[in-house]
């Protein structure tokens, strides 16, 4: 019970798991009457801080995580960092996500609260409830918070589904933490809008899937989406990948061969902390031009 009295403000970095489960953490802690403080959205400043403090061989999203944690430290009582082992049953997450609380504990000793997300063993809703009880809340409050939190994510996904545009020519895929971080994907979307091109962004449903060869959760889902693409409608696929991303280094080969079979043009934009805006612009323009030429040629012949 002692914990309940002390936690007034919980800090959640706006990176990685924040984007995995939209709205979930905020609803969860607010139901428990704990004030949630989010770190500020990624900016040039965050990136500079990240590249000066983080392990140099990590990928950009993990580096950004360190910077977001450092930004929050002094503003909050505790930091919330879950241990993500698996977000879909019979799958696993990137190993870098499973050590997050241990790494965060080094940056902010004694300030980290954590629980394990492992759908292989226990459902998210039950583990959330258990986590709330560990924080010192009664059974009923814990249950209420867990239910509300999971429903909030569901609602978020449904709303997104409804607002989806039907006619889209380009498909954007990436991990959720790249996709929903405005600083990373923003320039690409801005450019597409400027060129008046319709696009669709991948949705992560986290549904149970058939047991397939790909055990990484988000990669598997991305791959499934690519399999379902219709070559008639989809003119091209843009994948945003962070430099040195371990999962992507394997999966890009698979994506490439899937799309080659469907003969859908495919571009990979690799981003890191040194990414230049002009470079992204040029590459996108060239890609879209070449797609256009290809279509014109097809029409003529």
């Amino acid at each position: 019970m002692a914990q309940k009295m002390t936690i007034k403000k919980v800090g959640i970095p706006k990176s990685l798991y924040y984007f995995f489960y939209p709205d979930l953490w905020k609803t969860f802690f607010e139901t428990l009457e704990i004030e949630v403080i989010l770190s500020e959205s990624t900016s040039r400043k965050t990136i500079e801080l990240a590249s000066s403090v983080a392990e140099s061989e990590n990928c950009l999203p993990i580096k950004l995580f360190d910077a977001h944690i450092l930004e929050l430290i002094d503003k909050v009582d505790v930091l919330f960092v879950p241990r993500i082992i698996s977000t879909i049953k019979k799958h696993c997450s990137c190993p870098k996500l499973s050590v997050l609380p241990d790494v965060a504990r080094i940056l902010a000793p004694g300030k980290v609260i954590t629980f394990e997300i492992n759908e292989n063993k226990i459902k998210l809703i039950s583990s959330l409830q258990k986590f709330a009880q560990e924080l010192g809340f009664s059974n009923s409050i814990a249950k209420k918070a867990a239910n509300r939190a999971v429903n909030a994510t569901k609602k978020h996904t449904e709303e997104k589904e409804q607002s989806k545009k039907t006619e889209a020519s380009f498909f954007i895929v990436s991990h959720p933490y790249n996709l929903y971080d405005d600083y990373i994907t923003g320039p690409v979307i801005k450019k597409l809008k400027k060129m008046n091109i319709s696009y669709e962004i991948i949705e992560f449903k986290k549904e149970k899937r058939k047991k397939d060869a790909i055990r990484w959760d988000t990669c598997g889902e991305m791959n499934d989406n690519l399999f379902q693409l219709d070559p008639e409608k989809c003119k091209g696929v843009i994948q945003i990948s962070s430099f040195n991303c371990g999962c992507d280094s394997v999966m890009l080969e698979t994506s490439r061969s899937v799309l080659k079979e469907k003969s859908i043009p495919f571009i990979v934009l690799i981003i890191d902390e040194h990414s230049a805006l002009a470079g992204v612009d040029t590459r996108l323009e060239a890609f879209i031009d070449s797609v256009r030429w290809k279509n014109e040629q097809n029409c003529n012949s």
């Binding site: 061989e57 080094i106 040195n244 371990g246």
Partner: peptide, 11 residues
Amino acid sequence: GCMPEISIRPI
């Protein structure tokens, strides 16, 4: 770029 070994380096 080894995924597990790089992720434990801060530790």
